[in-house]
């Protein structure tokens, strides 16, 4: 069974989609990802789709599902690197992916996630706030 690799970077998970996904592979990713969020207690998910030349309604819905499922598991999702042609096509198709946060690059996506985690840490006065703030990566 093929899988799309999920990298762990600190309290975040990074997914770089590099192949044209067939539908089963996309569904497999949803399963894998939710499992990993729980396993590592991740607070953020970054999906880099800059290599994707086509996002149809199925993949679009999958991105939406991932964002909603992650939210339930207390993780934020940011989709990064959507190509202009893909964005125009999705809008024309009638999919504006409400509820999904986006960023131009992986770096900016990371900043957004870090900002989120810091905010929620401050609110909750969590036990180890420096862990999220330094952003060091481990895979």
């Amino acid at each position: 069974m093929e899988h799309i690799p999920i990298l762990r970077m600190g309290s975040f998970l990074l997914i770089t989609v590099q192949v044209d996904m067939h539908d089963r592979l996309a569904l497999q990713l949803q399963d894998d990802l939710t499992e990993r969020i729980v396993q590592h207690g991740s607070h953020g998910v970054l999906i880099d789709i800059s290599a994707l030349e086509v996002v149809d309604s199925f993949i679009g819905r999958m991105l939406g599902n991932i964002a909603s499922m992650s939210r339930v598991l207390d993780a934020q999702t940011v989709v990064v690197g959507m190509r202009p042609a893909v964005a125009i096509t999705l809008v024309e198709l009638g999919m504006s992916l409400p509820g999904i946060r986006t960023a131009l690059t992986v770096e900016r996506g990371m900043e957004i996630l870090r900002g989120d985690v810091e905010n929620s840490m401050q609110e909750l006065e969590a036990e180890e706030p420096e862990r999220a703030a330094d952003g060091s990566s481990e895979v």
Binding site: P84, V86, A87, V91, A103, L104
Partner: peptide, 12 residues
């Protein structure tokens, strides 16, 4: 409107 929406999808 579509342009603004597309830009948002890209993160701008």
């Amino acid at each position: 409107l579509k342009t603004v929406t597309a830009a948002r999808l890209m993160g701008a």
